[in-house]
Amino acid sequence: MTTSLPPTTAILRAPITPAGEAPSAWKVVARVASTVWSNGKARIGLIMLAVFVLLAIFAPLIAPYGASETGFERSADPSAAHWLGTTAAGEDVLSQLLYGAQISIFVGLVAGLLSTVIAVLIGLSWGYVRGFGADVINFIVNLFLVIPGLPLMIVIAAYLSGGGIGMIIIVVVVTGWAWGARVLRSQTQSLRSRDFITAAVFSGERPFRIVFREILPNMTSLIVGNFFGAATAAILAEAGLEFLGLGDSTVVSWGTMLFWAQNSNALLTGQWALLFAPGLCIALLATSLTLINFGVDGISNPRLREGTKK
């Protein structure tokens, strides 16, 4: 594989627009993707994630019935017409599962992205500034770290009850950004004392640019790792909150499926698929993101990247 050569030659040939801009965002994404793909475990994770995303996107085409279409036989066992059986309210489980993927993936990606963005902004500036400002941020972050996550989530969710998916995203982001910020802050502090950062100061760079152009790219793997970790946590938290009945129970998602299955004593009636299918999907989606995380190490280390080509 020639991962590193094309971008560099491209920079050389390109007319120098506002002098020496780094490779475009698309190239960075392509590079990140190819690096992650070159790792075996990460490749499995990516394939799993892709399957889930495709199923979610094309759910309206694939699903045999509508998500909340009722009127079938209630609590039916799996059959040719209903592969995974029906719910106590007479809905098709397979269709619910496919539509439910939309919510889980959406919440996971959006909440993961938002909490990563907050973690990056706070972690990097916290790591770079010294003095009073750093102490203030330190206090706030410690406050969020010291409060147990699930109770906080439940309290906030109960307070914002009825907000639906948006509310769940907010709850997950508010409770989930602090760890990422702390990790990114320590890495920033260790990078800050490196010579090339001092050299950037000598090159007349402003602090903002030093943080986001010199330090940030060196932490790509941490940030991407943080994103997948946060997305995993968000998916689990979303399912957890809805299972507890704190979400909007009229929305069809894996969490509400579990909630209704529990309510209708699905296991007692032998409806194992009703509990098992959404649970397995949540576990597999979380696994796929965790597997992808194995492949992110090489992203911000050009040397590791070249080491992977054979």
Binding site: I11, A19, D195, F196, A200, G204, P217, N218
Partner: peptide, 16 residues
């Protein structure tokens, strides 16, 4: 350690 491993020589020199 005095050069950012992710930036090309050109970038390192262009900034100053």
């Amino acid at each position: 350690s005095a050069l950012n491993p992710l930036h090309t020589v050109e970038y390192a020199l262009t900034r100053p």
